[in-house]
Design a binder for these strands. Structure first.
Length: 277
DNA sequence: CGCCAGGCTTCTA
DNA sequence: TAGAAGCATGGC
């Protein structure tokens, strides 16, 4: 990896397997969108960013090397060797298809609290509306940062009631958001501690939140806590496991099963003809 | 209009 | 203890 200074930001080059569309538009985050000029803009926690895929590397606009090293480097999982991880997967035709389809996908290391609320909102919902609800959540209850809004803190949501959350138009998920805010804000649940627990205990702790079941807990572990063994089983992955990997369990994919999951999930969503029903 | 959405809780047998 | 119903909202 190399960092090149520009007047307008920095270019990060010599990073293998790093495609912005494959990483930011694969269903793992909800606050990034493509801009009219082909770039990407979004916010992670309280860090706004505009970036571009260029022949020279990834252009991080208006970012200093210190800001990159202090935040975005970890967020984009820059220092992990994804090719080596793909090579650690079991040899299976459907998995080769999936990894070959989007080899530029990286698992984002998001904030645990933001991932928790985002994936609570995601349940029985579609990506377009998930993004809208999260945008209204940030715009109404997050602190301004530049032209954007930070993701609201647990304390800033814990003081609200369901009436206040009506403007989200999140339906019955509002009660779940409030229960998560109360349990995290009160200290009853410590997300930093949970991130370090044995995964079985971490799952159980997350699922004490009303509205957090096995799938949402797994997403929080994978996308918000850096637990790359976590393996979210949504309707698509359940179909994929039944129809494409009948002889496999999540453990079959190894310690980076969650990364395999992301390749398979995106491949099946983008090529629905691969699955029945 | 009807069906469905990166599910979960609650009810039922 | 498994399976179905109900859930709020809106995208397509």
């Amino acid at each position: 990896m190399k960092i090149h200074n520009l007047k307008t930001g920095i270019i990060v080059s010599e990073v293998e397997d790093f495609d912005l569309e494959q990483t930011l538009d694969c269903g793992q985050c909800f606050r990034f969108s493509q801009t009219p000029d082909g770039g990407w803009h979004g916010v992670a926690a309280d860090h706004p960013l505009t970036l571009y895929q260029t022949p020279e590397g990834i252009l991080f606009e208006s970012i200093t090397p210190d800001e990159f090293n202090g935040f975005w480097r970890k967020y984009f999982d820059i220092d992990r060797d994804y090719k080596a991880i793909r090579n650690s997967f079991p040899d299976h035709p459907a998995l080769r298809q999936s990894t070959g389809f989007t080899p530029g996908t990286r698992i984002l290391r998001q904030d645990a609290w933001e991932a928790l609320i985002s994936f609570i909102i995601s349940q029985n919902n579609n990506i377009k509306r998930i993004k809208g609800i999260i945008e209204r959540l940030c715009r109404n209850f997050g602190s301004p940062c530049g032209n954007d809004f930070a993701f609201p803190s647990p304390s800033s949501l814990a003081c609200l009631d369901e009436q206040d959350l009506q403007l989200l138009r999140a339906g019955w998920r509002s009660a779940y958001i409030l229960d998560a805010a109360h349990k995290v804000n009160s200290g009853q649940l410590d997300l930093s501690e949970i991130s370090l627990m044995p995964i079985k205990e971490a799952r159980e702790a997350l699922q004490t939140i009303h509205g957090v079941g096995p799938k949402v807990a797994e997403c929080v572990l994978l996308y918000g806590m850096g637990r790359l063994e976590a393996f979210p089983l949504d309707v698509w992955m359940k179909r994929a496991m039944t129809q494409l990997f009948p002889e496999y369990t999540p453990d079959s994919f190894g310690e980076y099963a969650g990364i395999a999951q992301q390749y398979i999930f995106h491949y099946c969503r983008s090529n629905p003809h691969c699955l029945e029903k």
